[in-house]
Design a protein around this nucleic acid. Sequence first.
RNA 1: CGGGGCGUAGCUCAGCUUGGUAGAGCGCGUGGUUUGGGACCACGAGGCCGCAGGUUCGAAUCCUGUCGCCCCGACCA
Length: 523
Amino acid sequence: MAKQQQGPQEKSQDAGKETITPRAKDYAQWYLDVVKQAELAEHSGVRGCMVIRPHGYAIWERMQRELDDRFKATGHVNAYFPLFIPLSYLAKEEQHAAGFAKECAVVTHHRLKTIDGVVQVDPESKLEEPLIVRPTSETVIWAQYKNWIQSYRDLPILINQWANVCRWEMRTRLFLRTTEFLWQEGHTAHATEAEAIEETHRMLGVYADFAENVMAVPVVQGAKSPGERFPGALESLCIEAMMQDGKALQAGTSHYLGQNFAKSSDVKFLNKDGKLEFPYATSWGVSTRLIGALIMTHSDDAGLVLPPKLAPIQIAIVPIYKSDDEKAKVLQEAEAVFNELKGQGLSVKLDAREGMHPGAKYFEWEMKGVPVRIEIGPKDIEKGSLCLVRRYVAEQEGESEQDLRKRKKAFVPRGEALSGMKALLDEMQRQLYERAKAARVRRTRTIDQLADFERFFKDEGGGFAWVHWAGSAEDEDAMAKKYETSVRCIPLASQIPEAARGEGKCIYTGKPSTQRVVMAKSY
RNA sequence: CGGGGCGUAGCUCAGCUUGGUAGAGCGCGUGGUUUGGGACCACGAGGCCGCAGGUUCGAAUCCUGUCGCCCCGACCA
């Protein structure tokens, strides 16, 4: 009894409230909390596999739409190839097979049987040849291209597919790395090397444009070091984004595959001179990992923050009323506002749920990252104004929670609020990008001395370090062991800031170096 | 594949040390009062305690086995 008195179950003040761990306390936990509380995704009963919930999937659908439009605009068409890849196909390209060997799901049987009351794999249904669940589709696609390509007139082939793939990773994280994930993979075939390389760069550009202008995520475009290249590629280009914790996240890749896959699949075409040649290939992809990038770039301790261009709901309308009389009036106005905004082509949600206090709705929509909330109550109707609340505003130093909340809120004359909504959303989109870019600048250094490098990553929180590099793969490994950093990319010339141009000496080996690379810790 | 943790109500967990037949909070349903930043009251529904053996008169609890998931490391979009 005395024992009981000593340790009463302390009731948390937040009991029952869904809470998010602050970023400063535990960034990894914060990420998991946001994913869960914003109802983006959750763990399934299957190891390493997630369920993407409607709100998360809606974001993916918007990404798909934006990307797909860009693929079409650059001349690509969609198609679909099989989930299963015969082992012999995958094995055709040696480097490729070796690269994926350790993470393949393998189908070996095709039937179940009830034996002693237990449903199990029928041992007699063993496949002659095992099937690999695609980790990527180069080999199945090129097996088909063999039939489609005979002449230079058949080229280029510019195909994309939206699909799921499976990579049996040891360690998984929601969106960032799961056993099964959704993505798109472009696979093109060209008559000349120059054209294929151009394509590789073009699609990297598409990704960069999408990341910066739609996701509002600034990226560095560059090439992977040989050790980080896609298995089977001659060159892998990538876009690298910086997350709020200073770590780099590869957000998209575009590979120049040369003639490797054409050769291994024995695909040849007759050129204008009547000579047989192997076509040149590219492949490029982005995945649901982008949702992870989105979260870790913009979101805050109150939950998800979405750029208007990707927000499944751009505006949430919350009606406020007491009496039935008020309720009728308020709902009428709320519906009118809803229809007017919808008529502008905006994505609006009228949250008329009953028995839920307005405050609870505010929290929910904030958690889910809705850019703008409109509160409509009797007072607003009386004044002919709307209460607009932004999900985020440009930061000010040393601002209190109260002041920040106040600053997000604005009472705007009705007509002005409605006619200015698009502009407001555009402005918020721009602000998000600027904020992310400023955050990256704050954590970016041009570094020449190893001691400074060490201090940057060990004491100053780290970020992107622009350093001269002329080391070998072994040197890179050694750096990784010591500082947990790696060469994230060798930036394209256009990406190099003024201060980081010119030649120098490798930060690690001291050898002469022609350009700087971006080093960082990474996801 | 190593190291750790956890499987009890939809969720988070208590109960297990010292076996006696199932609990809390949240959520959910109904009714009422509420509603400008996470409402409250009343009543109610909801569990083969991961699974399989064993010990015992009796197992969520003890023993053995087994399955699954999560977290930390080695591999990766």
